[in-house]
Structure formats: structure tokens, C-alpha cells
């Protein structure tokens, strides 16, 4: 499961729609087409399917009973719960931030817009480990506000707030990046039409803007969620690795692996992969179910 941004945009519904035209317009020879297709398929098999299959085989090597037992372990169970909690907080936050940022960038002209656009990409271009370190520098006991936080009994690092912050930072671009091109393409005349008909700003957003972007938004949220649950680097730095308390699923996988508890490690990894797979299946199912509506919203 790739969470890299370029992969996400290639798979986005907008580009998919353009593909058939492209194929028709280009006239490569049959051999070239065949070679390209085989290369692509081989690549996907080697780098995506094979590892995925390996994860599941390893997890089930000693049978389903062992697999279930590994997931039932108290520490593992707490990691699963923590991952779901962090995602449940970080994803809605990024939903709101992402829509707000995309709205501002796509529909308004203001100073510093180019800077903001660049800033949104920052989490993609900075190593997650560094993102984590930034929070340590900000909130650690040697930081400026560290002592103040400590004296007020506020725990950010090595606790849920730190994990959420790091996850929000790393997954910020997904929703915004999905929405900005979509909103830019749609322009603001629908919104202006609603306003001219007497709708308030909020009514306009709720009845016009949101329905116009809902598919892009859904896709951004699903990707954001997949990444929020799978994030390792940044979370690893701020987590402190307290067993049963601040270990998320990816961190738990690493710990189990380092302890040579391969079945348990791969069991958790398989569960993580499964969550990501469900995300993609969900997206595809929705796309098929509402394909007519999606097509209509783009054609018009």
C-alpha cells in the first residue's frame, strides 16, 4: 500500500477519466504497448502484491489460532485501540483544515497564497522523523514552553496529544491536495449563484460547495486515514515507546519484530494492511455505486 502523494494523484478519479482519451490519442506500436503493460504489471506484482502476500503468509504461518492469539495480547490490543483513537482525532481535524485551506487557496486571491500552497506540501517533503523532532523541540522539557506545560500538568510528548499532533502534521496535505485542483477547476460561480439567490455563506458551503467536492473529499479523507493509521517515523519520535500506553500499531509491529516474535509482528502488520485494503475497497465500491453521479458532476 503506497501512501506516497504521486501515487495518490495518479489513482484519483479525475485522472482516471482522462486516461481512455489519452490511450486513444496516442498511437504507440503494439509491441511498445505490450512491453509497457508487462513492465507495469511486473512492477506492481514485485513491489506491491508480493510483500502484501508475504505479510499475510507470515502472519498465518502457525495457523489461525496463533494469529488470533497474537492479536488478543493486551499490549497489542492497546496499540490497536490507540491507533484507532489517534486516527479518529487526526482525520476529522485534517478534514476541517484541509477544506479550509483548499477553500482559501482555490477561491480567494490574497497575499502569501503561493507561500501557503508550498507550506501545505511541507509534510510531504520533510522526513517524518524530522517532523517528529520538531514537536520534541517545541514541547520537550528543554523547550521554551516545556517547563510551563510541566508545571500545569499538561502532557503532550509521550502521550496521546503528541501522537495526534505528529499524525495531523504528517497527514495534513492529503485532503487539501485532493481538493485544491478540484475546487480551482470548478471556480466560484456556483457559490456566487447561491449567494446571489440569497443564501448565507454557511448555506452556500453546505448546499453547494460541499456536494460539489464530496467525492474528492471522501477520497482525500480515506487516504488521510490510511496514512494516519500507518504513520511510523514521526509517531515513533514523539511516542516514547511506552508499552501498552503510547505504542501505535506500526510501533508495536517493530517492537514485536525486534523481539523475534515474528508471528505476532506479522499478525499486527496484516491487520494494518487489512485496514488499508478495506479503505481502498470502500473507495472503489463507492465509486462504482455512484459512478453515474460522479460522471455527471464532472461532465457539467
Amino acid at each position: 500500500m503506497s501512501h506516497d502523494p504521486t501515487a495518490s494523484s495518479v489513482a484519483s478519479p479525475g485522472r482516471q477519466a482522462a486516461l481512455p482519451q489519452l490511450a486513444a490519442a496516442t498511437s504507440e506500436s503494439r509491441l511498445a504497448r505490450l512491453t509497457l503493460t508487462i513492465t507495469a504489471l511486473a512492477f506492481v506484482a514485485l513491489f506491491l502484491l508480493l510483500p502484501l502476500a508475504a505479510v499475510f503468509t507470515e502472519a498465518l504461518r502457525k495457523g489461525p489460532a496463533e494469529f488470533v492469539a497474537a492479536l488478543g495480547d493486551a499490549e497489542t490490543f492497546s496499540a490497536i485501540r490507540l491507533t484507532l483513537t489517534v486516527a479518529a482525532i487526526a482525520v476529522p481535524l485534517n478534514l476541517v483544515f484541509g477544506v479550509a485551506a483548499a477553500w482559501a487557496i482555490a477561491k480567494f486571491e490574497f497575499k502569501g497564497k503561493a507561500f501557503l500552497t508550498t507550506l501545505i506540501d511541507l509534510p510531504f517533503s520533510v522526513s517524518p522523523v524530522i517532523s517528529g523532532l520538531v514537536f520534541v523541540l517545541l514541547f520537550g522539557s528543554h523547550s521554551l514552553i516545556g517547563p510551563w506545560l510541566q508545571s500545569h500538568g499538561i502532557q503532550i510528548l509521550f502521550a496521546v496529544p503528541g501522537l495526534v499532533l505528529a499524525t495531523v502534521f504528517v497527514t495534513f496535505p492529503f485532503v487539501a491536495r485532493e481538493l485544491i485542483p478540484l475546487m480551482q477547476e470548478q471556480g466560484s460561480s456556483d457559490e456566487e449563484a447561491a449567494l446571489s439567490l440569497g443564501a448565507s455563506g454557511w448555506q452556500t458551503f453546505w448546499h453547494v460547495t460541499l456536494p460539489n467536492i464530496k467525492w474528492g473529499l471522501l477520497y482525500g479523507v480515506l487516504l488521510c486515514n490510511a496514512r494516519a493509521m500507518g504513520e511510523f517515523g514521526a509517531v515513533s519520535v514523539v511516542s516514547g515507546h511506552i508499552r501498552g500506553e503510547t505504542n501505535t500499531m506500526p510501533l508495536q509491529v517493530e517492537i514485536l519484530y525486534n523481539e523475534y516474535n515474528f508471528v505476532a509482528a506479522f499478525a499486527v502488520a496484516a491487520l494494518l494492511a487489512l485496514l488499508a485494503l478495506i479503505t481502498l475497497i470502500l473507495k472503489t465500491a463507492l465509486e462504482i455505486r455512484y459512478s453515474a453521479e460522479i460522471a455527471a458532476s464532472r461532465r457539467h
Binding site: 460561480s189 449563484a193 447561491a194 439567490l197 440569497g198 448546499h207
Partner: peptide
Amino acid sequence: TVQQRNIGFVFQHYALFRH
């Protein structure tokens, strides 16, 4: 504001609510 003016505006490319 545009809402208070109570005007009817027809846009060049219709701007109908597609959904």
C-alpha cells in the same frame, strides 16, 4: 451585500447546481 440586494443573476456558463 449581494444577498440583501435581492437580484437575479444569470451566469455566462449557467452555474446550475449540478447535484
